[in-house]
Amino acid sequence: MQLDLNLLTALDALLEEGSVAGAAARLHVTAPAMSRSLGRIRHTTGDQILVRTGRTMTPTPYAIAVRAQVHELLHQVQGVLAPSRELDLATLERTFTLRWHDSLVALSGPALLASVREQAPGVRLRFVAESSVDTPELRRGEVDLEANANRPAAPDIRAENVGETRLVIVVRREHPLTLDGALTAQRYAAAEHVTVSRRGNLANALDDALARVGLSRRVVATAPTEAAAFAFARDSDLVISVPEATTRSLAAGLGLVVLPLPLELPSAPVYLSWHQRYDTDTAHAWLRGLARDALALCGGS
């Protein structure tokens, strides 16, 4: 059977976008043309690939199982067919998926997007939310770049420290900690706290630091994002402890006050991570450079 490599490109777009219309727009073809490609893919594979459920399309179990393999195969084919092609940013058309900590998106995302649009107007960025569990999207090729405080342990994942930030306290204006007396570790520990954790963790490294000096704090709630935690602090005496580099712009907009943390604690790193398959990908390397600059420019270092 003679295979058409164009079907691999179409299949990758269909699995990425989850719809005929989305895949057509991504590849700059008409919806009827993409629908015909889907029909050929179904005939070739013997699988429906996408099935309609109400107003949306849902991938079949087979489609889910081969999605990462299809993406990897397409990347390999592109590398074989154009190994020495120079990067032409003016004509580059590509969609990059970035899974960054939400506060890093708010802080550095606009600067990154502005640089990308200025240099390569055909490039699109997909910022997706972090997961509450460890996920292998980097390895599967579903995420191009991660940015957060975690250094991946897998040997096939590259990680670059692009900066660091220290923890600070965020409270409402006229909070008791902003009034009389010095801000001590004892006063900090005596307050009620809200932690920021996508996994719902009520304790973190701060509790270990407090324990080392014989103190403990009472955590009354956990929030999945800093923006959500700030809403708790805005109208109460709850205390939020978060990285400084990702905090000041958000806090100022809500009328909150940023105070120094009265504890000796190492600075928190900011890591940029990607899979080793993209080491020699010139477009990916270009994006990594812009991301590195955006994170550093907006306070990552």
Rank of each mutant, 00 (worst) to 15 (best):
D12Q: 12
E16Y: 05
V20M: 11
G22R: 15
G22D: 06
A23K: 15
A25P: 00
L27W: 09
H28P: 05
T30S: 15
P32C: 03
G39L: 10
I41H: 01
H43T: 12
I49E: 05
I49W: 05
V51C: 08
G54P: 01
M57K: 14
T58R: 13
P59V: 08
P59R: 14
T60N: 04
Y62C: 11
I64T: 14
A65Q: 10
A65G: 13
A65I: 11
Q69P: 02
V70F: 03
V70K: 04
H71D: 10
H75T: 15
G79K: 05
G79M: 13
V80H: 13
A82Q: 14
A82H: 13
R85E: 03
D88F: 10
L89K: 03
A90Y: 05
L92D: 04
E93D: 07
R94H: 09
L98C: 08
W100V: 11
H101K: 07
D102R: 07
L104H: 11
L107G: 04
L107C: 08
S108Q: 06
A114V: 08
S115I: 02
V116P: 02
Q119P: 06
R124Q: 07
L125D: 11
A129Y: 05
S131V: 08
T135A: 02
E137F: 07
R140Y: 12
R140A: 04
E146I: 12
A149T: 03
A153R: 15
R158Y: 14
I169Y: 07
R172G: 04
R173A: 14
H175V: 00
H175Y: 05
P176V: 02
L177G: 01
T178N: 12
Q186I: 03
R187M: 03
A189T: 09
A189I: 08
H193Q: 00
R198P: 03
R198K: 14
A203N: 13
A203V: 09
A209P: 00
L210N: 08
V213M: 07
S216L: 06
R217G: 01
R217E: 04
V220N: 10
A221R: 15
A223L: 05
T225I: 08
E226R: 14
E226Y: 10
F230C: 03
F232M: 13
F232N: 06
I240W: 00
P243A: 04
A245C: 11
T247Q: 05
S249N: 15
S249H: 05
L254M: 11
L254F: 01
L256P: 02
V257K: 05
V258G: 02
V258W: 01
L259M: 12
L259V: 03
L265I: 08
L265Q: 08
P266M: 02
S267K: 11
L272V: 01
H275S: 06
Q276V: 15
Q276D: 04
Q276F: 06
R277V: 02
R277L: 04
D279G: 01
L287P: 01
A294W: 07
L297E: 11
C298N: 14
G300T: 09
